[in-house]
C-alpha cells in the first residue's frame, strides 16, 4: 500500500520507465534497418493495442465487478461511429483526433449509463442476455440510419487513417494505468465486493447500483475510445463488424487472460493475436482452436470431476472461483 508521497513518486517513475522501455523496444524493432516488426506486423501491434483497451474495459465490468456484458462490441461501435463522423467533417490533426476519441468514449459512456440504469439490476445470465440485446439494437439502429448520416448497412468510408502506433500505444498504456489505479483504490475494492457478495456489500454501506454503473460506464468509455482508434485504423467501418461475435471475441480474451486479472488480459490479447497471425490463412481452424480453448479452460478451472481435480493438482492450477479471485488492489 502506498501512503506517502515518496513511495508514490517512486512507483510512478517506475511505471513511466516501464512504459518508455516497452515503447523504445517496439520502436527499435520497427526501424526499417532492423525490420523485425515489419509494416504488416505493425498493423498487428496496433490491433493488439486496440484490443487490449477493449478487453481491459470489459474486464473492469465483467472480471472485476462481476457484471456479465455481451454487448461490448456495441459500445465500441458507438465510439467508432462517433469518431468517424467527426473526422469525416473536420480536418485531421492531433487536437481533432484527441477530441474525436474522447467524444467516442463519452458518447459510449453516456449510452452505457442510460442502458445501465435499468439493466444492471439484473443478475448473471439475465444481464448477459440484456446487454447482448442492447448491443444488437445499437447495431440494427446504425444499420437503419440514412446513408448520408452514418452510412447504413453499407458502412462509413473513407475515414481518414488517423491512428498510428504512438496513439494506440499511449491509449492502451493509459487505460492500463487507469484501471490498475482504480483497482488499488476504495472504488476498486467496492467493485470487487459487489462481485463477491451483493447483499453483504450493500449491508456494509456500498451503493451497489452506483458501483456497477461506475464500472459499466468506465469500461464502455474505454471501449468507445478503442472504437474511435479502430475507425482511424481501418478507415472503413460497417455495422456488421460490431456484432455479437465481436463481443464474444473480446470476452474470450478476458476469460482466457483470467477474469479480474488485468495483466492476464494483456498477455491473452498478445497470445491470441500471435496465434491469429500464425493461423491467418486458416481462419476456421483458428476459431475452432479458440472455442476448444474456451471449453477446456472452463472445464479445467471450474470442473468438479475427480479426474479434473487430479489434473488440476498435477498441473498446479488453482481452482478458479468465479465469484472473485485475488485481493482487490493487491
Amino acid at each position: 500500500m502506498i501512503f506517502d508521497k515518496k513511495t508514490r513518486a517512486k512507483s510512478s517513475i517506475k511505471a513511466i520507465i516501464v512504459v518508455c522501455i516497452i515503447y523504445a523496444v517496439m520502436k527499435i524493432l520497427m526501424l526499417p534497418q532492423i525490420n523485425v516488426i515489419n509494416p504488416f506486423y505493425q498493423t498487428i501491434v496496433m490491433k493488439i493495442c486496440i484490443e487490449i483497451t477493449l478487453a481491459l474495459g470489459l474486464n473492469l465490468i465483467t472480471g472485476i465487478t462481476g457484471q456479465f456484458s455481451l454487448g461490448h462490441a456495441g459500445f465500441m461501435s458507438v465510439g467508432a461511429y462517433t469518431a468517424a463522423y467527426i473526422m469525416l467533417h473536420w480536418t485531421v490533426n492531433l487536437a481533432t483526433i484527441i477530441i474525436s476519441a474522447l467524444a467516442g468514449g463519452i458518447v459510449a459512456g453516456i449510452i452505457a449509463f442510460l442502458i445501465g440504469i435499468p439493466t444492471l439490476r439484473l443478475r448473471g445470465d439475465y444481464l448477459a442476455i440484456a446487454t447482448l440485446g442492447f448491443g444488437e439494437i445499437i447495431r440494427i439502429l446504425i444499420q437503419t440510419t440514412d446513408k448520408s448520416f452514418l452510412g447504413g448497412a453499407a458502412g462509413l468510408s473513407p475515414i481518414p487513417i488517423y491512428s498510428n502506433f504512438e496513439l494506440v500505444f499511449i491509449m492502451a498504456a493509459l487505460c492500463y494505468v487507469c484501471i490498475n489505479n482504480i483497482l488499488k483504490s476504495s472504488y476498486g475494492r467496492s467493485m470487487v465486493s459487489v462481485r463477491e457478495d451483493e447483499i453483504a456489500s450493500e449491508s456494509m454501506g456500498v451503493n451497489i447500483t452506483n458501483v456497477k454503473l461506475l464500472a459499466f460506464v468506465a469500461g464502455t468509455f474505454f471501449a468507445g475510445i478503442a472504437g474511435a482508434m479502430y475507425s482511424g485504423y481501418v478507415g472503413f467501418i460497417q455495422p456488421k463488424d460490431f456484432g455479437f461475435m465481436k463481443s464474444i471475441e473480446i470476452l474470450m480474451i478476458v476469460v482466457l487472460g483470467g477474469l479480474g486479472n488485468i495483466k492476464g488480459t494483456v498477455a491473452a490479447t498478445i497470445i491470441l493475436n500471435i496465434i491469429g497471425v500464425i493461423l491467418q490463412d486458416f481462419a476456421e481452424i483458428r476459431m475452432i482452436l479458440y472455442a476448444l480453448l474456451l471449453i477446456i479452460i472452463m472445464i479445467m478451472m471450474c470442473g468438479e470431476s475427480p479426474w479434473i481435480i487430479k489434473m488440476r493438482n498435477m498441473l498446479n492450477i488453482k481452482k478458479f472461483n468465479f465469484k472473485g479471485r485475488g485481493k482487490a488492489g493487491a
Binding site: 472455442a291 472452463m298 478451472m301
Partner: peptide, 14 residues
Amino acid sequence: RIAVLITAIGVSFL
C-alpha cells in the same frame, strides 16, 4: 452458472 454459459458459447463456436 456463468462458467457453464461461457462453455456453452465455446461449444457454439466449435
